[in-house]
Design a binder for these strands. Structure first.
Lengths: 351, 351
DNA sequence: TTGAAAGCGCTAACAG
DNA sequence: CTGTTAGCGCTTTCAA
């Protein structure tokens, strides 16, 4: 346990000032001779600039934060891998937090990051705009991935009012929106639409949607794809846990034995659906067809192999990291990545 | 984007010195009156001490590092969740890195952590003792989880020599071992032994082991459980990737169609085995029985559901985090957590 | 019990 | 092109 050399040590050993060392090491101008000398001494002393000093001086930590709901969910594992890969290529540290899809924990983690002066953050948000206010106020560069923060209830109400006005042929007042953070999303709308069309093509009419936290855009897409009127009993929600997902799936199958197909909004829900169906002796795809959001390695292992809506988790993470590192001036604020319906064996014609 | 209050602001507003504020906030002694006053002002100014200043002063970052091979592997996801849960309870930041089971990347990540002055690290190591030397030299508190660093080749050789001496009835010289870092491991030996016994009980004699990086202890246990002579063709290794795992599994099945059972050393290998078997039209468990290390949610979804050796990934992470945060004086240096054979449907009697 | 002051290692003005 | 210097926000002696 020997203590590391400081910039001062290098300066002395090289017979120059500390500023020169700093300059050379950060690519500033210096005479070839000096540069060479400094570099040699630094190498010889095995000098590594301490991030501590730099951070304090610049009043910000390098690197970035990453907040996901649950690293046990393969999709978020993929996303995280993407972020880490990008960060590794630039040598940046990534502070990771797991929110458990709980706004309160998310809030605490944001506080922790603020305390660390981490000013760049990639998040799969759980809380609403209010939860995210402190981060924005502090001037953090935030990039949302996979989903956007829910909008506060009051705003939704206001939207409803606006909609009514529009029905009456009136133009609602233009109200300012909170500045949208850049985000990286999958094309949920297209993904869901394709899946629903596929199921309808197979003859299915009573199609259910099994959603989880943050799946609002997917449900909306589902509603749109199914068209009015949507049978509300066929749209059910679980919280983040596997237990809750199982309960929701099981409840759905039991309360509506007439449904013939299910779209699961995420891989944990898909897993729950398979389990619940088996428990209730429903055969897939004979009794019920299933499409799952997320392609995960085990989707192929199921029998039958699961038909899925694949989204590029790793790419999403990588892109988000790029965005947060280089907040381009006129870069597209929102990146939408394509989804793909991968047809395997979990869907069949309506029984 | 308003700038945060500093300790100086609080001191001025409370009419005390900065030292007093520091003391009060870190639970030092102060008159009740002063304390109250400082606390009130701090709250009112929404003061949060900056980790930057503290870190520089103490020449160390709070929190810890976490290095895993791949967050896409559910087991490491579980482990990471455990670490993050523990860290969250103490408000500590966790810097996570993914090594891809590549010693070089691991080495770079260690360097990055050193640069950040992160002096506590939990790692699922990939490199050998040499890779870990810099961390040790720098005085990092390291806790290994799931596995230990491979020992350098020369040492293995020396061991072989020692073994020969013992065979000759000689006592080899006592050579110093590198100080062992504390670690949290699953009881691989018992887990593998139980699985092998179970398979033998079903009548299997030609049992193969499908291993990956870091599975040395598991192979050793396998060899021991099978007893001499071990059919070396039945012990095959893959690198970390899914492709490699698939290739290894497929190759194994094809080169030794006479094998009747396989023990997969990890969930990625288990996945590969299922896939390869299916591709070769081998039925599980009729044609080949399979036991997989790691219980993961999808093990139950397979058909047949996979018989597994479960290890408590989340607990392992949590314990490791506790160990690294409180390096107990005379605490057990190595924690071994129990494994459990969970019998589902992937093993049958020898055909 | 309290405050003043000295840095921790680094970068960025500012002179030279 | 280069060196000197002034902090960044905090903790921690050391006196008072």
């Amino acid at each position: 346990m020997e203590k590391r050399a400081t910039i001062k040590d290098v300066a002395e050993a090289a017979g120059v000032g500390v500023a020169t060392v700093s300059r050379v090491l950060s690519g500033g101008s210096a005479s070839p001779h000096t540069r060479e000398r400094v570099l040699a001494v630094a190498a010889q002393l095995d000098y590594r600039p301490s991030a501590l000093g730099r951070n304090l001086r610049q009043r910000r930590t390098g690197g970035m934060g990453l907040l996901v709901p649950d690293l046990t969910d393969t999709f978020y594992g993929q996303l995280a891998e993407g972020v880490l890969a990008c960060a590794r290529s630039t040598g940046e540290p990534v502070v990771v937090g797991s929110t458990g899809d709980d706004p309160e924990q998310e809030s605490e983690l944001i506080g922790m990051l603020l305390e660390q002066s981490v000013d760049r953050l990639i998040a799969v948000p759980t809380g609403d705009a209010e939860t995210w206010a402190p981060a924005v106020r502090a001037g953090m560069t935030v990039v949302f991935a996979d989903r956007l923060p829910a909008r506060p209830a009051e705003e939704e109400q206001q939207d409803a009012v606006d909609d009514l006005m529009r029905l009456d042929g009136l133009s609602p007042a233009v109200r300012p929106r909170p500045p949208e953070a850049p985000s990286v999303l999958a094309d949920d709308r297209a993904g869901i639409r394709t899946a629903v069309r596929y199921l309808r093509g197979l003859g299915h009419r009573r199609i259910a949607f099994l959603g989880g936290p943050g799946h609002d855009r997917r449900v909306a897409a589902f509603r749109e794809a199914v068209g009015t009127p949507v049978d509300e009993e066929l749209v059910v929600f679980a919280t983040g846990s596997r237990d809750s997902a199982y309960a929701a799936a099981s409840g759905l199958f039991q309360s509506r034995p007439d449904l013939t197909a299910v779209v699961a909004g995420g891989n944990v829900l898909g897993e729950a659906a398979v389990l619940a169906a088996r428990e209730l002796d429903l055969r897939v795809p004979r009794d019920v067809s299933l499409v799952m959001y997320d392609d995960v390695p085990w989707a192929e292992l199921c029998s039958p192999p699961l038909t899925v809506i694949a989204q590029p988790g790793r790419d999403m993470g990588y892109r988000a990291a790029e965005l947060v590192l280089r907040p381009g001036v006129r870069r597209p604020r929102t990146v939408v990545l394509p989804t793909e319906l991968i047809i395997r064996g979990s869907c069949g014609p309506r029984r």
